[in-house]
Simulated assay, not measured.
Amino acid sequence: MRIRIIGALVALVLAVVGGVVLFLYVSSAEQRALGGAALVEVYVVTEPIPAGSDVATVTDRIEVDKLPAMAVLDGGVTDLNQIEGLVATTDLIPGEQLIRARFEDPDVLAARGDVPVPDGLQEISIALPVQRVVGGAVLPGSKVGIVISANTPDATTQFVFNEVLVTRVAGGSSFVPESDEEESAPVSEIMVTLALATPDIEKLVWAAELIEEGTAGIWLTLQPDAVDTSGSRPVNGANIYL
């Protein structure tokens, strides 16, 4: 009986020792395979990220992974501060590393007239007099507020949308384009293309149709990143002085 117990203990000890030896061997093999390279933390995509996305809005779609230095792509993002304030210039798929070259300053994209439409939104264009487009200061990539003023029996003016992305701007008949060319002529309207969700497009078209009838107006405001949109309320003849 005692011999059996001793045999079982010896077998258990050998099994433990064997497991430790195997673990050390595998670890050593991995280190040899990596050539002794240190592991580097780099961000990788875990869920699809559409073009135009700001990294601040997709932190739940990326994670940190440890890779050998030799496997980290040139420009691989190891710190989100490297792409702070930038937007993706192309769709990113799960498994790929975040690369600085695939992000750009939205102002640079705007200067090229290359503003991606966020996933799920559609583009729509409206032509407005220059004074209703902040004197022509609205550019591709700008974020604007939209105020609709209906001159109907219950005439009401109110902000309807905030932080709407402008994707394109073109002079119609609305501002004097900035140019050194002498032939640059003033225009009276600006064609502004906006990215909106389907229900919001319906509201904008309703207001635009009223403009054609002369019973409504649309004004755009240029909104900075830290815009305060609180305090908005319907304004009409009954409360304008309150």
Rank of each mutant, 00 (worst) to 15 (best):
V77Y: 00
D154T: 11
V58E: 01
L139I: 00
G76D: 05
A11P: 02
L73Y: 05
I146H: 02
N81D: 14
V176D: 05
G85W: 06
T46R: 05
G18A: 15
V169N: 00
T89H: 04
L165G: 04
S173V: 14
V21M: 12
I190D: 02
T198S: 12
E189K: 12
D228W: 03
E181T: 10
V45F: 07
P118L: 05
P118M: 03
A238Q: 14
F175E: 02
S27I: 02
V42C: 09
T90G: 02
E213V: 10
E202R: 13
Y43W: 12
V235H: 02
V166I: 11
A51N: 01
L34K: 05
E212M: 11
V10H: 05
A15G: 09
R61F: 08
E209D: 13
D228V: 12
V192L: 06
L14T: 14
E189I: 04
R168I: 00
E41I: 02
L128E: 04
A150E: 11
D225L: 14
T221S: 15
A150D: 14
D228P: 07
Q223V: 02
N162I: 05
P199A: 06
L9T: 10
D114C: 01
P129A: 15
P48Y: 07
S174D: 13
L39I: 01
L9Q: 02
P94D: 08
A101S: 15
L194Y: 01
G145P: 02
D228H: 04
T229E: 09
A8K: 08
S173G: 13
V10N: 07
T167F: 04
R132D: 15
K203F: 07
L39P: 04
L242A: 15
T78I: 10
A197P: 00
P48K: 04
V64L: 15
G217H: 04
D79I: 05
D180H: 08
R102C: 01
V58Q: 08
P129M: 12
T215C: 01
G120Y: 08
R233M: 10
A127Y: 01
P48E: 03
M191R: 12
E63S: 10
T89I: 15
V117C: 05
R4F: 11
T215A: 11
V26F: 11
P153K: 03
F159N: 06
I146A: 03
S232M: 14
P199N: 01
V16G: 10
G85H: 01
I201N: 02
D74I: 08
A208H: 09
L24S: 13
G141T: 05
D180V: 14
G217F: 07
N239E: 06
E104L: 14
V235G: 00
T152H: 04
V133R: 00
V16N: 11
V45Q: 03
V187F: 08
K66Q: 14
Q122D: 11
G172R: 06
L67A: 10
R112Y: 07
Q223N: 15
N162S: 15
L34V: 00
L210N: 07
M191Q: 13
D114G: 03
G85Y: 07
T157P: 03
R112E: 09
I6D: 05
A11T: 14
D154G: 06
L22R: 12
L14F: 12
N236K: 06
W206F: 13
L121G: 09
G36S: 04
I62V: 11
A15C: 10
G135Y: 07
R132P: 04
